[in-house]
Design a protein around this nucleic acid. Structure first.
Lengths: 232, 232
DNA sequence: TGTACATCAGTGAACGCGCGTTCACTGATGTAC
DNA sequence: TGTACATCAGTGAACGCGCGTTCACTGATGTAC
């Protein structure tokens, strides 16, 4: 009931065969296991990442995983870090669009402020876009023990070297620098903003908004970001 | 790993014995099962509500549950509805405090508006209070298939006969009536407000704010409600 | 009022499931002589 | 350069776990005569 049911993998699939084999037998089984875990997480969420199914997909016997991870929890941690990195990249893409929009402009005071606001919004928009596009990975990245150890894992960083949490923090710092956010509200701002977008994501992914259509969801996303912008 | 581990129940506990037996053998086994399910959910969250453990706690053989529920999912549905009802009661308690505060006052226009705002805030505060006080039940009430069938279940209602979602809706209706919320923003307001408090609850219960201390959490709760009030 | 009977709530035993983890092993690889 | 050897990544088999669900049953209860 609670467990996720998945068609078994063809044991002949995902074998390395003629590919380069930089490592011992399999050729980077560790990576293959994380990839299989990501695939499972992408398709069916974090609950589907089972050691036996992961090794099955990697074309390897179950206990082979113990050469690379102490136990299932460690494997899951690695998968979570990868999912976080993918979230970070989604946010970075939105940030890049803001950068492009303002590049070449003479940065007057009002423009500095507009850009700072746009960056905070971009961070939120990237977060939501990732949730809609990769619901399974989103839930893997931001569910039970987020931020515990996975958040600190360097593998959780995006291209810029920052993880999702750090991207939000940087955007808020700029908002303070631009004078649009009183310094003493800064620490709470982090979680207030995050709460809003995270809550919407949860309501859509596993709550009463599950049946909602895409246009409605996008409009709600915009409304939530409006609220954050006004409310911070 | 994923599954929740719980000390086994003493099979001699929770037996009806000399208590009134309005029904057949056990005396309302259905209720006993739901109660045991609630206890499990309260202590360890929705994942801990297993048919075998529930029947064990009710002092009955596993398959006895099938006299009262078609399967585990139906049992869980009933437990969820009860958890939702408890959430509704938490919100109703906060609303009652607002009522008391305004009772006996001559309802001028500004007071009507203040009361409408206070009611929306009370709904949010009751939601958060329930999350902090009963995290296991909160997650049971508002996680995976919330609103699906459980939301419509009459057993999900509080003392007023309204479920949590309806309580929020009513408060927002009054905000529109008081002129503090443009009518066309009303439908989105429902989910925008909910997103903010729900997100905070999730970050605290199973996110990066898990280690946060109570005063910090309460302050964040106030900040989120402030943002909602300004942002709606 | 007393007895036979039908009902059906709870029993007892068993099923097959996928799971995580352990053990002693084997045999391809890289390295040292 | 060729051979012996140590390493250790992946194997094979097995463990015990709790789970949901099924079956044919039994025996206390309420009801009809």
């Amino acid at each position: 009931m609670d467990a996720v049911h998945i068609p078994l993998a063809d044991p002949m699939k995902n074998r390395p065969e003629p590919a380069p084999r930089p490592t011992y037998r399999h050729g980077d089984l560790r990576r293959a296991l994380v990839d299989a875990g990501l695939e499972l997480a992408r398709e069916h969420g974090p609950g589907a990442v089972a050691l036996r199914e992961v090794t099955r997909r990697a074309g390897v016997v179950p206990n082979a995983a113990y050469r690379h991870f102490g136990n299932l929890a460690e494997l899951l941690q690695a998968v979570r870090a990868s999912a976080l990195a993918e979230a970070a990249r989604s946010m970075e893409r939105e940030l890049a669009a803001v950068e492009a929009q303002f590049s070449g402009l003479r940065m007057t005071q009002p423009r500095l402020l507009a850009r700072a606001r746009a960056r905070v919004r971009a961070v939120g928009a990237g977060y939501l876009r990732f949730a809609w596009k990769e619901p399974g990975l989103f839930r893997t990245a931001f569910s039970p023990p987020v931020g515990a150890a996975a958040g600190a894992d360097p593998a959780a960083a995006g291209t810029s070297g920052r993880n999702p949490f750090e991207l939000l923090g940087a955007a808020l710092d700029e908002l303070v620098a631009a004078g649009a956010l009183p310094r003493q509200r800064r620490p709470q701002a982090e979680y207030v903003a995050w709460s809003a977008v995270h809550g919407l994501a949860m309501l859509v992914l596993e709550g009463p908004l599950k049946p909602a259509a895409r246009p409605q969801i996008d409009q709600l996303g915009a409304s939530v970001l409006d609220m954050v912008e006004r409310g911070l």
